[in-house]
Write a protein that binds this DNA or RNA. Structure first.
Lengths: 243, 243
DNA sequence: GGCCTTGTTATGCAAGTGTATAAATATTCT
DNA sequence: AGAATATTTATACACTTGCATAACAAGGCC
């Protein structure tokens, strides 16, 4: 008696996107185990069989979802760079800051990341997807640091640059995890402050206006600090390498 | 015609331990999805039904396994402290160093950690287990930093201490992840070096002998640096707080 | 040794899993 | 409008999952 379910034909790209999104939501809420074809289909508003029509197997849907989340994260951090295109130090600060605030800091995104990466160790396909996204992020950091060092007139031996990139990437990752897992333990901008301060310590120079107390409260739109490109050359304490 | 399988009765504690260990191995190799009761039992050398005899449900076995791994990790990092009980700075350095070398840096352990924590966001029982272990680790860091600061004659306002603990914990976490995920990208002691160096930068003081180039190559047993308790007060560059 | 306790195995079951296939209908093309 | 196409639904199937229960045997006790 109940007739067949009504439906609409959506474009291929749209459906793929919807299915990927539904997958990520299921993963975030119930882990990889909860991302069954039926649960995904239900959330995407279709029936389970349709998944096989767009993805050869569930495995490939998961890979696509993982690639999507990795791309989204680096893209969000990079987006902060587009808005602040002037001074290298400011760019680096903006990058760190953007990485340590919503929407990059997000419990759901973290849950997805952890779920996937937990399996990336055993699944070769996910492993390569991970390594690509990861190195992309670190290269971004390294490029930013190189800009900063040359702009401040410091020579940058490749080995030292590498160490900076590794360390800065690490502290961003670590703070990101802390923020995602226990965001309620921190003041809204606390992690960003700590992150930028730590990077300043490591590089031995100031990234922001030296007299700005904790950065002005964000009242306008966007995640940007004030747009004035004025900088002091700042304290610029000499990095102590083995003398 | 094959008669019933022969078996031995093991003590309760032993069996629980074996089952937990088997669970962790399954998780490390095939993710949480691969940790089925049958796979666990097979690896533990028993049949599936026995699991229910020791754990009310599979859920509780997983919780026990998660608690086990968390405890093991902090225990390993703390073990480094027991060996170096003298000078606070050296203790902190040893703690950082131990956290960034095998066996704490281990791809399998990371896989387990990620798998569990991915679900900790959705599963309340795992969430509390996580938060406990996590705060325990951070408190450990905070206590170490406090020791160092008082030993070097610096006042330690609570807020600043907190920031240090957060930042240092973050860089340990971040480097730990990098090491576990891409250990082949780094020299054996590179991460430990970077970690200690970064902490030195953040605290604005030296933790090791200032003239030791990269720490002597470990030839003896244990993960310890030389046991001489001699320290220079070192550079001790003044931390630049907002003046 | 024979019994009793209980750790352990073996078997079964209902629910859920991914996938394959056929039927149906929305949309396009002429 | 009507036929063609391929998106979408619906159903089925083999398999796995966690869990329950009954049969069994290993080791301790008298």
């Amino acid at each position: 008696m109940e007739g067949r379910r009504k439906f609409r034909r959506e474009g291929e790209e749209r459906r793929r996107q919807d299915l990927i999104e539904a997958t990520l939501e299921c993963v975030a809420e119930r882990g990889l185990q909860g991302a069954t074809v039926r649960a995904i289909a239900l959330r995407a508003g279709v029936t389970a069989g349709l998944i096989r029509h767009y993805f050869p197997s569930k495995e490939e849907l998961l890979q696509a979802a993982y690639a999507a989340i990795m791309g989204r994260m680096t893209e969000q951090s990079k987006a902060a760079l587009a808005k602040v295109a002037q001074e290298p130090r400011r760019r680096l600060a903006a990058f760190v800051e953007a990485s340590l605030q919503p929407p990059v800091i997000d419990a759901r995104v973290f849950s997805q990341w952890a779920s996937f990466i937990g399996r990336a160790s055993s699944d070769p396909a996910l492993a390569v997807a991970h390594r690509a996204g990861y190195l992309g992020f670190r290269d971004e950091v390294e490029a930013l640091v190189a800009e900063v060092l040359t702009a401040t007139g410091r020579d940058a031996p490749k080995a030292e640059l590498r160490r900076y990139a590794i360390a800065i990437n690490a502290i961003i990752d670590g703070l990101w995890i802390e923020g995602c897992l226990a965001g309620d333990f921190f003041e809204p901008r606390e992690l960003a402050e700590i992150g930028i301060g730590s990077v300043e310590d490591m590089l031995g120079l100031k990234l922001r206006q030296p007299t700005a107390p904790p950065l002005p409260p964000l009242d306008g739109e966007g995640a940007g600090a004030p747009t004035s490109p004025v900088f002091d050359v700042a304290v610029q304490k000499q990095k102590k390498k083995t003398p």
